[in-house]
Simulated scan of single mutants.
Amino acid sequence: MSHMQLQRCSVGSRMTSPTTDFGAVGGSYAHYNTSGRGRLRHDLVARRLLADLPRTPAGVLDLGCGDGEMTLRLASAGHRVTGVDPSAGMLASAAERLGTRAETAGRVRLLQADIATLPTHLGVFDAVCCSRPFGRPSGRSTRRSWPPAE
């Protein structure tokens, strides 16, 4: 994975709906990302995210980072990004993509974790990005405040 660091976090629940397991549809998802519609969606989301972030490097938590599209764009713009996704396959794709870009070296950390059970050791972030839809983990509410109350 060259300069990419992948950490696995213990999780207490898993996404169970096949429609929300992007790791199971990695090939289709990659195809969508390169389609005209996918590129347009990513361009619009990135434009909005980058407009809302400070020009100085910000710490960004990218929830559901998938194959690293937004992580790559944010890190290439100079921000420090922690990408979180429950799928090891999607994170491997992200690490591969990010590993080919020298300008992201040292700015990206990838973590395997579920959004419903985020570990508390992630740190403090200036912004949180969640540009992908999430399903609801079985039996648990996804409604949470971050960071957790002391």
Rank of each mutant, 00 (worst) to 15 (best):
L44T: 15
E96A: 14
V84C: 03
S17M: 07
L44D: 03
L122S: 08
T71C: 05
P57T: 07
A149Y: 08
R107P: 15
T142S: 12
V84M: 01
V84T: 05
M1Q: 08
I115S: 12
Y29N: 03
G59S: 11
R41N: 12
T56Y: 14
G12P: 11
L98E: 04
V81K: 00
L6Y: 02
E69W: 09
L44K: 14
L91H: 02
V81W: 05
Q112F: 03
D62Q: 02
A51N: 11
L40A: 09
L50N: 03
S35H: 03
N33R: 12
P18D: 10
F125L: 05
L122V: 15
S76P: 01
P54A: 07
L74I: 04
L49N: 08
V45C: 09
L91Y: 03
R48K: 05
A113C: 06
G12H: 14
L53R: 13
R109P: 09
V124I: 10
S35I: 01
G78Y: 00
D52E: 13
V108W: 01
G99A: 01
A95I: 00
N33K: 15
R80Y: 13
P18K: 01
R14T: 11
S2A: 15
R143A: 15
G66H: 00
R8K: 10
C65T: 00
R41Q: 12
P137D: 01
Y29Q: 00
A94L: 04
R132H: 12
L40Q: 10
G64F: 06
G99W: 04
R39M: 15
G68Q: 05
G36M: 09
G64Y: 07
T20F: 08
T82H: 00
R143D: 14
A127G: 07
S138V: 13
E69T: 12
D62R: 00
C130Q: 08
D85I: 03
R14K: 10
T71R: 13
A94W: 04
H121F: 15
M4L: 10
M1W: 11
P57I: 14
R39S: 07
G64I: 04
M15I: 11
S35M: 04
F125S: 04
C130S: 14
S145T: 11
L118V: 01
H79V: 00
S76C: 08
R73I: 05
P148A: 07
H31Y: 14
G64M: 06
R73S: 12
R144N: 09
L49H: 09
L40P: 01
D43S: 09
R109M: 04
V81R: 02
G27K: 13
V60Y: 05
G123V: 08
D126T: 10
H79M: 01
T104G: 01
V128E: 03
S2E: 09
A77D: 06
G83N: 05
P119R: 13
T82V: 14
D67I: 07
M4Q: 03
L53H: 09
L44A: 13
S87W: 01
G123A: 09
R8M: 09
V128Q: 04
S141N: 11
S145W: 14
R37D: 13
L74C: 05
L72M: 13
E150W: 12
G123T: 06
P147F: 06
V81P: 02
R97P: 05
M90C: 00
P119E: 07
T120K: 12
